[in-house]
Design a protein around this nucleic acid. Structure first.
Lengths: 208, 208
DNA sequence: GTCTATAAGCGGATAGAC
DNA sequence: GTCTATCCGCTTATAGAC
């Protein structure tokens, strides 16, 4: 979308997006200049405009790619008719793992939605809400089927998403716990939060 | 701290801080100009510098006041020797309510720590970590006393804080649920997350 | 597609009158 | 303590050579 008519290769464009993701995550969109992005990529400022016509376009591209990837991957896994606890387990594993792996993108998606012009905001927000609604549906269906105990599907969905997304606040790849261990812990926490017993299985996998 | 020697009254300084909190929360620190703050207050730019010597000082003042207020209020409530479930309930009620009431300050504290120069960051971060550690201590003590079931006190503390703080992502004062109802829901969720039964009491209060 | 150079304006911060 | 006026660096974005 943001590529200038006439440009062919995508190498530089991808390098710009990678640099932008990292810099936006570190300093925030408003605090990152086009010069800083260019310097990081190893080109001059003017060259950026062969790939993106405005700084806003860089942000939009990064956010849209990320949100589309998130929901696309999730919808590959999501089985709306599966056993509630199975679906919940898959959701937690997917969300936590994805957020550990794509730390910077997630952080930007959370923080920089307000930096989007209204029209761009709508596009990104629509995808985000779709994901949010699917999480709520998973919980609501579990509640209706009598598998989950919860007070309010909407609040519970927001609480669950916040809890899981919070992994980006402290996770470091070389930290005390492995990605697998963290996944298990969050599955156990999510299960408990909807009144499910924490299965022997989950505890074993954590211990092992 | 940031008041210029010679200034007497505090009215304008407080107005500046209030405007800054709102604008920083809406647009982010880097995206808010001193001119925008001045305009919001109803004075000219130059006058700002009678109260704060730099823009950074405005942010530091706002964050320090907020973090000190948070931990001070919490430590008034916190009884390190109370029954674990009582302490947890108090913590959840305090945290959720405080975050609903001080939405903007909380948002800034989360987002703009990176906008602080190293020395200022250290001051604010120290207070934040102290609070975080106390939450962890509440959970760890409950686990040791056999009152709570949890996998890892540190991860659980981060997950609990993230879940509770997440209320700022969606809470609107005129929304579907009252502050009291939201408080109850989060207490129930926190209890379940550490394996505590959700008491009749809590459910009644929610229903009522 | 990338470069250099430049336009046009906004940014934080200061000086000095009142 | 607030005002107006100003400094000057940095910002996004463009123009035109290569």
């Amino acid at each position: 979308m943001a590529r200038t008519a006439g440009s062919t290769g995508e190498k530089t464009s991808l390098a710009i997006q990678r640099a932008a993701v990292r810099l936006f995550a570190e300093r925030g969109y408003a605090a990152v200049s086009m010069r800083a992005i260019a310097e990081d990529v190893g080109i001059q400022v003017g060259a950026l405009y062969n790939h993106f016509s405005t700084k806003q376009d860089v942000l939009v591209q990064v956010l849209l790619v990320h949100m589309r990837d998130l929901i696309e991957k999730w919808e590959t896994i999501y089985d709306a008719n599966g056993q509630p606890q199975d679906v919940l387990e898959k959701l937690v594993r997917f969300h936590v793992r994805y957020h550990m792996d794509r730390h910077n993108e997630v952080f930007i998606s959370f923080m920089e939605l307000r930096s989007l012009e209204p029209e761009n905001f709508s596009k990104v927000e629509a995808i985000r809400q779709r994901y949010e609604h699917q999480v709520r549906d998973v919980l609501e269906r579990g509640r209706v089927l009598g598998a989950f105990a919860l007070e309010d599907a909407h609040v519970s969905a927001m609480a669950l998403i916040a809890m899981m997304t919070g992994v980006t606040n402290w996770y470091k790849p070389d930290g005390r716990l492995s990605g697998d261990e963290i996944e298990e812990i969050y599955v156990a926490k999510a299960f408990r939060s909807v009144g499910l017993p924490v299965t022997h299985d989950v505890q074993e996998r954590r211990a092992g």
